[in-house]
Simulated scan of single mutants.
Amino acid sequence: METAVLLRYGLLYGTGTWYAPDGAFAAALAGDRSARFLGTTVVNDTVSSFVHVADAAGAALAALDWPGGPVNIVDDEPAPAHEWLPALAKALDVPAPGPVTGRREWERGALNGFARSRGWQPEWPTWRTGFAAQRDIP
């Protein structure tokens, strides 16, 4: 009987993503009106979980040897938008939108304990260091 591993990734950031310095999110924050998705991003209490693309790729490779089932592939620090979005804007050297309050009940982050129990270790354990490192990556 075959088994399947379902990898549930957090928001991907790093080279080639929306959240990269040359990505659509940075363009939207900088005022590019063609990046329409920014209108859905609110600096509020909604909790998100991130994962660097390199860590996501490493998890996909590691999962080839894992038993079946769903596994969250996220960093160690789910965070509300009012924390991560200003940090990302600073790392991208663009202005951050102003904060608002509130969130919907279902808007919460994910935890990676199950993936870690299977031996996965993110190179970027928190978006805080991962976002800042993007400034140093050409």
Rank of each mutant, 00 (worst) to 15 (best):
W120C: 05
A63V: 12
T126L: 03
L92P: 04
P21I: 12
S48V: 01
D45E: 13
F131D: 00
V43S: 10
W120V: 06
M1T: 13
V74A: 08
A24C: 07
A28N: 08
A110T: 11
F37K: 07
A89P: 02
T3I: 05
F50M: 07
A87R: 02
L6A: 13
W127F: 11
W127E: 00
A28E: 06
R135M: 11
A89H: 01
Y19L: 15
F50T: 01
W18H: 10
W127C: 00
I73S: 10
V94Y: 03
P86Q: 09
M1I: 12
H52C: 05
P67M: 06
A26W: 00
A24T: 15
F50L: 08
P70V: 15
S49K: 00
F25W: 05
F131H: 00
A87E: 06
G130M: 12
A62Y: 06
D45R: 04
W106D: 14
P95K: 02
A87G: 04
R128I: 14
G58D: 08
A87C: 12
G69P: 09
L7Q: 07
P125E: 04
A57F: 01
Y13L: 00
S117P: 08
T15R: 12
H52V: 02
A96Y: 08
P70Q: 13
L12Q: 02
A91F: 02
R103K: 14
E2G: 09
A110D: 13
Q134P: 06
R116E: 09
A4H: 04
T46P: 03
V100T: 15
G31Y: 08
W18K: 06
V94C: 08
Q121N: 06
R135D: 08
V74N: 05
P80N: 09
V71Y: 10
L12N: 02
M1L: 10
R103T: 09
A63M: 10
W18E: 11
R135C: 09
F25C: 08
G14P: 01
V71A: 06
F25A: 13
W106C: 09
A133N: 13
F114M: 10
P122C: 05
S49T: 00
F50Q: 01
P80A: 15
W66N: 02
E105S: 14
L6P: 08
T129E: 15
G16F: 01
A56N: 02
N44G: 13
G102S: 11
